[in-house]
């Protein structure tokens, strides 16, 4: 385990692991404390913490506190699917000045506790392995910058049927320059060839 509270060189890895119980969603079918203890033994892990709900405010505050206190430069949260809370935790670590891409998530809930409800030992072993894999990946994480590009405030609408007409009018009404390109000599499309339209039986043009 890395030296506690004693940051070495700047490029030293200092990983914090946060194991979420998710109430009983995770803790109900595997031993979270055993997972937390195991995480402490992994190389470059500076601290390993157990949370009742890592995603809730108290959990997020813990992450922030430990990042500052232990000068963490990687954060691994072992909780649920990244599709749900990756944005939450990225914002959380960004709040304390860490690049959001230095955050990694281990999906203990959907991919472990919920699918191995009846074998606590096997689920706990798998969870430990998953945390190890997550930490291994975290070691190689690099900061990323979300670049921005300028936008040309104009739109091209291809097709002057009813859909193209409506889209053009909506865009134009909101102040956007629209180029409406129609293959035929007139706009109108199929709609213009209809007599009346259902269900209101009114004229198409």
């Amino acid at each position: 385990m890395a030296d506690k509270k004693n940051p070495g060189k700047e490029d030293d890895l200092r990983i914090g692991v946060f194991v979420c119980e998710c109430g009983l969603n995770i803790a109900g079918s595997l031993d979270c404390e055993e997972v937390r203890k195991y995480a402490e033994t992994l190389p470059d892990v500076a601290v390993s913490v157990l949370n009742k709900y890592t995603c809730a405010d108290p959990g997020q505050n813990e992450i922030k506190r430990y990042v500052k206190e232990y000068d963490l430069n990687r954060v691994v949260v072992s909780s649920c699917t990244p599709l749900m809370h990756e944005p939450t935790f990225r914002a959380c670590v960004a709040d304390v000045g860490l690049n959001p891409y230095l955050f990694e998530m281990v999906n203990l809930r959907e991919h472990c506790s919920w699918v191995h409800l009846h074998d606590r030992k096997a689920a706990t072993d798998k969870a430990k392995d998953m945390v190890k894999i997550g930490v291994a990946r975290a070691r190689h994480l690099e900061p990323q910058i979300e670049k921005t590009v300028p936008v040309t405030k104009a739109a091209l609408v291809i097709g002057g049927g009813v859909a193209g007409i409506q889209a053009s009018l909506d865009l134009a009404d909101s102040g956007i320059q629209v180029y409406l390109v129609e293959k035929d000599p007139s706009i109108g499309g199929i709609m213009a060839a209809l007599d009346k339209t259902y269900p209101t039986m009114d004229c198409s043009i």
Binding site: V149, P150, Q177, Y179, S186, A192
Partner: peptide, 30 residues
């Protein structure tokens, strides 16, 4: 249909076809 023809923000290009598109989101050249 008439509204399209007279809207100040719409340039209508009828009897026209898109032949080339390059660039990317926010910055297409057509």
């Amino acid at each position: 249909m008439m509204d399209v023809g007279r809207h100040p923000n719409i340039k209508l290009l009828t009897y026209s076809e898109v032949e080339e598109v390059s660039g990317y989101v926010g910055n297409f050249n057509v």
